[in-house]
Simulated assay, not measured.
Amino acid sequence: MSEPLVHIQDFRMAFGNTTVIDDLSFDVHAGETFGFLGSNGSGKTTTLRALLGIYQPTAGTLHIDGKVFEPADGAKLGYLPEERGLYKKEPVLETMVYFGRLKGLDKHAARAWSLEYLERVGLAEKAQVRLDKLSGGQQQKVQLGVTIMNAPQLLILDEPTKGFDPVNRRLLMDIIEDQQRAGATVVMVTHHLEEVERLCDRVILLKDGTSHAYGTVGQVQEQFGSTVYRVTHTGAIPASPRYTVVSTEAAGHDRISRLAPAPGADGTTVLAELVGGGVAVSGFGSQRTSLEEVFLRVYGTDTLAARTSGTETAGVGA
């Protein structure tokens, strides 16, 4: 296999006496889409900022295309930060053309590309409107356009669909898929795990600055057990060494729980344990472990519920 496009080895990041990243290593290979996952404060944004030279790492190697990233390499890279960073007092089209020229396009090409992109994302009529007059989601669409307009070799997208409704989220996923087909390498931070299952070849899951899962989506699912059991029931499910309750949700007068079997336990064993424990079971079936369930096992149900309720801060631990 060729050298990875992104190589992070033994990365450590400390702010004063607080270590926020500890002994982190992973690679991103050319042409793949890589999911960078974790709860708020797990270390994702800190890692990206160290990779791009915004933070100086305490220890370790962080390389893009075989070397430490420098601003002169920016033409090969598109970075969409979680925070919006455009000139909000300027018109949309003028801003896009300006950034296009910074990225090496001539004025005519930058204007033509920008107009076509604005048409695609439903903002053609906003071309002469100041950015600060747009909604947050509209500004995010503009910033994504600026990020991809020079067809960069590497795209780093930090929450690209944050705050979008399902229709606009699908539109942006389609745009990202276009970049994939054109050969771009994509590193994507997202809390929408269905996006990861749709787009990503491999993933890493961070908690407290360390890796808790790393590999293809299938490998990560297998690492946490490839099968869970979906149980429709009334009453509480008792604790048992035969299974772990991954999640429980209300479904009318019933509850639906997902149970991860213990090593050596199959569906017959789990069902017998439930019935023997007095659980009134009205439905029972197996399904593949989802990334959401992997997330639950690493972080717990409270964190899963909260992970989209806030944003990562710009400072320590983000």
Rank of each mutant, 00 (worst) to 15 (best):
A262V: 11
V316L: 06
V142T: 00
M149P: 02
S25W: 13
G252N: 15
G300S: 06
V203G: 09
H253R: 14
F284M: 07
V246L: 12
F36C: 11
Q223W: 09
F224W: 11
P91H: 03
E273Y: 11
I21Y: 03
P4R: 03
S286L: 00
D27F: 11
V217K: 05
E159K: 08
R169E: 11
I204R: 09
G136T: 15
S114V: 03
A75Y: 00
G38D: 05
K107C: 00
L131D: 05
P81N: 09
Q138C: 01
S290H: 02
L118I: 00
V275R: 07
V231I: 13
N150W: 00
L154T: 04
F34V: 05
S226Y: 01
S309A: 11
V92M: 01
H212S: 07
G60P: 13
L154C: 01
S309E: 10
K107S: 05
Y55N: 07
L123V: 07
Q223Y: 10
D106Q: 02
R230V: 14
T232H: 10
M173K: 14
G215S: 07
Y79N: 00
T216E: 10
V68D: 02
Q287R: 03
L172N: 01
V186P: 06
A265H: 10
I64V: 15
R230F: 05
D254Q: 09
E125A: 11
L77D: 07
I204H: 10
L93V: 09
A314K: 07
L259W: 03
K207W: 09
D27S: 09
R230M: 10
R297Y: 12
R255H: 14
E94S: 01
E32I: 13
N17H: 13
T210R: 15
G277Q: 01
D165F: 02
R297S: 14
L154D: 06
S257K: 02
T289H: 12
I8T: 09
S290P: 05
E94K: 06
K67W: 01
S309N: 06
L271I: 08
Q138E: 14
L24H: 05
L171M: 14
A109M: 00
L24Y: 03
V279I: 10
D266E: 06
G276M: 09
Q139I: 06
T234I: 05
D23K: 14
T46L: 00
L37T: 04
G85Q: 13
M173E: 15
G267D: 04
V20A: 13
F99C: 02
G285T: 10
F11K: 05
E222Q: 14
V294G: 04
L157H: 09
A250D: 13
P152S: 04
T147L: 02
F99H: 04
A265T: 07
N40V: 02
D27V: 12
L48Q: 05
M13L: 15
I256C: 13
V189I: 15
A50L: 05
G136K: 15
L259G: 08
P81Q: 08
G53P: 03
M1I: 11
T46W: 08
N17I: 15
R111F: 03
K88Y: 13
L77Q: 01
G283N: 06
G66H: 08
M173N: 12
S257V: 04
Y87Q: 01
T18A: 13
V281F: 00
A110H: 01
P57N: 06
I175Y: 00
M1N: 12
G16W: 10
F36T: 14
L52G: 04
G277W: 02
H7L: 03
K141Y: 05
V231D: 10
A127K: 15
